[in-house]
Amino acid sequence: MALIDIPPDLTFVALAAVTIIGAILALQARELIYGAVALAISFIGVAGFFVSLDAPYLAMLQIAIYVGAIVVLILFTIMLVRREVGEEAKDSPQSGEGSVGLWLAGLLSLAISGVAALAGPNMPSTLPSGSLPVSELGPTLATQYPIPLIILALLMSATLIGALVLAKVER
């Protein structure tokens, strides 16, 4: 199946490291631009997870929309917004604020991981046999979920007009 025989555990650990370290760097990098690049790397890690979960179409979407569109949009906005380099230094949290956020985030993820680990024996541990063909996604979208698709299209055009109206410069 695969060209190179990499053990799945190693792939998982590498992808997890790329995703989580990228996410941390996106928030902690000193310059906003480096943060945006780290965010793109984290998104690519999530795309790798999608590939390992038999969802190559989602991986393609993830790279095309998140890395290709959202991160580029963020980079554009950073270049429009940033005035001076020194402005970034003020992003560090005030004393007390940072530790409260850290405790909140740590407790939340520990609680979710703990519940998942406790429920682990009842969850499927091995991948079910059989795979998801990519060709099934299109018919499912068109036959089972046609109304959300139409609403999504309307919402998208409304968003486009809204963003244009918001960002327009009055002359």
Binding site: A16, I20, L104, L108, A116, A117, P124
Partner: peptide, 19 residues
């Protein structure tokens, strides 16, 4: 690699985002 491993990675991402 089980379902729990994916949930743990996802929980870590959620924690980073909430922070």
């Amino acid at each position: 690699v089980t379902l729990v491993s994916y949930i743990i990675v996802s929980a870590a991402l959620l924690g980073i985002g909430v922070y």
